[in-house]
Design a protein around this nucleic acid. Structure first.
Lengths: 233, 233
DNA sequence: GGTCCATGTTACAATTCGTAAGGATTGCGC
DNA sequence: GCGCAATCCTTACGAATTGTAACATGGACC
């Protein structure tokens, strides 16, 4: 009976240290991450029982990450955020978070709320895993893209990873390295053109004009950016 | 599929009315109680899915009631209290409450937090031996699959193991390794194609189109995923 | 213009998966 | 024990996917 593992995702080192210390003291194992890509790469190996997620991440839309976690991971998800508006809390919870704690927080309460989550059995209920954008609807559970006119294109796992990365951080620059970390998993030496191929294939499935891509834009020397108005549902 | 029942226990009629109205609007059934004795008497008849409990009750120690509920009832327990000290929250949660909301509260957040609790399954439910999904009913006690039109297909023990694994985690990715561990038990060296065969046979029994399986999807390089709306009975 | 280098695309090979066929094992009835 | 049937694993080969290599394209800079 190993101690439950709590993953901590926050970009502020001080918060990470505070949470990690408190939770270790309370008898949990902890793993801390400062960036979403780092966190996601680790998810493939270790599966935490609880995830503490800060919404103000530099490299990813935090809510989209929460949504994905809720669907794919069996872990309980607790948002810790400085955004204290009721609307923030409601959307966070609706997207699949199990609890929402407001900064500044009391460590004792965090521990109590984690324990409350661990008392419950796992297995989050099934829900849809879809995102709409510019005439398309991506069904990640079915691995299919459905156009508004009804035509359906299926995509593979590798293509879905790329697509998901884009949809989780729309209108934001994604550097090549970031992408490699999120996808390849194996951290960084072997120069990889595999990603280009993935993107190429995804582009053709989206019906992009190679000369003038509207959705997936290449920023020469920097990375990629996904233009498109995404709404998860 | 009846709406979830939310029990509301608060001594202030105004709060009761506010909560009841909001929750009814949100699609829940509600039952309101002003005193603990009244509430406890009702528990014998109706079993609510969620209990909203105010701690400041005139006729009973609220925390003791929460503790008893947590032990005896399968319902999710949410405390709504004016006592805002961290210590209050911690003890409330430690005693078995699943959430703690501070007065004054925003009704929308209450709804969101109730929904978050309901997303979790109340019972792990391995005791049940039948499950319905997408036009089929699986009878694990009889090793038979019954279609809605009455046709019956029997399945073997090995096939049943796979089917049960899928039905217990619908719409979730099940990695190949996970499956081997759950089924074969044989610790990790000889990678088997046996599992593929099991799944293949199960697919044909479910009448899946090999080119386009709708229920059991293969995720190349990752595992399998069972799509389908499962309800155990 | 020309050159360099990042990126797009295509073709091919390696890996992974599906399924049919055969054989091993188990259980049952005689 | 023997025959038979059911179940399940293994083997073998075809199909799908994915990464790699090779080549083509196009921007940046002079």
């Amino acid at each position: 009976m190993t101690a439950p593992l709590v993953a901590i995702l926050d970009d502020e080192p001080q918060i990470r240290a505070l949470l990690s210390d408190t939770l270790t003291e309370a008898g949990f194992r902890t793993a801390t991450y400062g960036r979403a890509t780092e966190f996601e790469a680790a998810l493939a190996r270790a599966t935490p029982d609880v995830c503490l997620v800060d919404l103000g991440l530099p490299d990813r839309d935090g809510l989209a990450l929460v949504h994905r976690l809720a669907l794919e991971s069996g872990a309980a998800i607790i948002i810790i955020s400085g955004r204290a508006q009721v609307q923030d809390r409601v959307t966070g919870l609706e997207l699949g978070a199990d609890d929402y704690i407001i900064k500044p927080f009391d460590p004792a309460e965090v521990v109590a709320r984690i324990r409350a989550r661990l008392r419950q059995p796992k297995t989050p209920g099934p829900s849809h895993d879809t995102a709409r954008f510019n005439g398309w609807t991506a069904h990640f559970d079915r691995y299919a893209l459905v156009a508004d006119d009804g035509t359906e294109v299926s995509f593979s796992h590798a293509e879905g990873e790329v697509l998901r990365l884009f949809l989780e951080a729309p209108k934001r620059l994604i550097s090549r390295q970031q992408m490699q970390e999120s996808l390849g998993g194996a951290a960084g030496e072997s120069f990889d053109r595999a990603m280009d191929v993935r993107i190429s294939r995804l582009r053709t499935k989206l019906g992009e004009d190679p000369k003038n891509p509207r959705l997936i834009k290449t920023i020469y020397g920097a990375g990629y950016i996904f233009l498109g108005d995404v709404s998860w549902g």
